[in-house]
Amino acid sequence: MKKLIALLSAVSMPAQAHDSLAPHAHPHGLSMLAGNDAVICMLFALVIGLVAYWRFRRAS
């Protein structure tokens, strides 16, 4: 069983580190995946929107 797990782990490692799973540059244009800065900005805007919504609901 340990040999099987070791073999499966060795085979699956390259797939996890593939370039298509992370934002990266392309020779023909920009990556379509959002970068870390865009994700942080979206989460920040979502939190601000939720706080404003909760305050508005309380005031009503």
Rank of each mutant, 00 (worst) to 15 (best):
Y53A: 12
H18L: 09
V47S: 00
S31I: 02
H18E: 13
F56T: 03
L4I: 10
L8P: 01
D37Q: 09
L43N: 07
A25N: 02
H28D: 15
M42Y: 08
H18D: 12
A17G: 09
W54M: 15
H18Y: 12
V11M: 11
A10T: 06
H26N: 15
S20K: 05
G29P: 02
V11S: 09
L21E: 10
H28I: 05
P14H: 13
L30R: 07
G35T: 13
V39N: 06
L8F: 13
M42K: 06
L46C: 08
I48S: 11
N36R: 10
P14E: 12
S31G: 04
V39L: 14
S20P: 01
R58P: 02
M1Y: 14
V11P: 02
I40W: 15
S60M: 13
L50I: 08
K2W: 10
L7D: 00
L7Q: 02
R57Q: 13
H18A: 14
L50A: 05
F56G: 00
M1P: 02
F44K: 02
D37K: 04
L50E: 06
D37T: 07
M1C: 12
A34Y: 05
A59N: 09
L21H: 14
P23Y: 08
G29V: 01
G35S: 14
H24G: 14
L50W: 00
M32P: 11
S12I: 11
F56H: 08
L4Q: 11
I5K: 03
S60I: 03
L46R: 05
N36P: 01
F56Y: 14
I40R: 15
K2N: 11
I5T: 03
P14I: 13
W54A: 14
R57N: 11
A25F: 03
I5R: 05
G49A: 08
N36T: 07
P27T: 02
N36C: 06
C41N: 12
Y53E: 06
L50S: 08
Q16T: 10
A25M: 00
S60F: 10
G29M: 01
I48E: 11
L30G: 06
L33M: 15
A15C: 13
R57P: 00
P14G: 12
L33N: 04
A38C: 07
L46Y: 15
A15N: 08
L43T: 03
M42E: 04
L4N: 08
A15E: 06
L46Q: 06
K3H: 08
A25H: 00
F56L: 04
S31D: 15
V51W: 01
A25L: 02
H28Y: 03
